[in-house]
């Protein structure tokens, strides 16, 4: 055990093999091999067995299922979108489908939570290529740029104020103590 542990020191945040702690002792009676460095060295994790693991995000087989779930919902949503001709984007229909599915089937889903949180955390990089598409919109921007910026700023301010005021008003009616 000590031999392998020394070969793969567990530093938090670094990539370590998932089976770093697994030694000959797990396959043979410990007393026979654990003190023999040659055995420990021979049984060090082989390449396919060493799965990268990190402090924040552990990669494990259930993640395939979580990704498949997300893709299946999107696929069904896209199918519904194409078949029904609804102008609702397929991914948004997929979001409703996933929400319905989660509400209908109780249970904790730590992996799905982890995967979708990871995707949400990295949304920014995903729309960079689209934002670079502005390169082709020069004429549109020159013509409408001011209007778009003014409208966006004013609308953001109004939306926030209206949402907050309506929410406070409605809460005060339903929760008189608050």
């Amino acid at each position: 055990m000590a031999q392998v542990a020394r070969l793969y020191p567990q530093r938090p945040g670094k990539w370590i093999p998932a089976f770093a702690g697994m030694t000959a002792g797990m396959w043979w009676p410990r007393s026979l091999t654990s003190n023999i460095p040659a055995y420990a060295a021979r049984n060090q994790p082989s390449l396919p067995r060493s799965i990268p693991r990190r402090a924040g995000m552990a990669w494990h087989p259930a993640m395939i299922a979580a990704i498949a779930t997300l893709l299946l919902c999107q696929l069904l949503g896209e199918g519904i979108h194409l078949l029904s001709g609804l102008p609702l984007p397929g991914a948004v229909i997929g979001m409703f489908l996933l929400l319905g599915w989660l509400l209908l089937r109780p249970g904790e889903r730590p992996t799905l939570v982890q995967v979708s949180a990871w995707l949400t955390a990295h949304l920014s990089v995903m729309f960079v290529p689209a934002a670079v598409g502005l390169i082709e919109e020069g004429p549109v921007l020159a013509k409408n740029g001011v209007a778009i910026v003014v409208a966006t700023l004013a609308s953001t301010l109004l939306t926030m104020a209206v949402t907050a005021l309506v929410f406070r008003w409605a809460l005060a009616r339903t929760e008189p103590t608050a």
Binding site: I67, L70, L71, C73, Q74, G77, P89, G90, A91, V92, G94, M95, F96, L97, L98, L99, L102, L103, R109, L112, V113, V115, S116, A117, L119, T120, H122, L123, V125, M126, F127, V128, P129, A130
Partner: peptide
């Protein structure tokens, strides 16, 4: 990269749930 926006959108259901 853009493709990932799709599953990310579907995943917005998770925090709601």
């Amino acid at each position: 990269l853009g493709f990932l926006l799709g599953p990310a959108t579907v995943g917005l259901a998770v925090p709601l749930w």
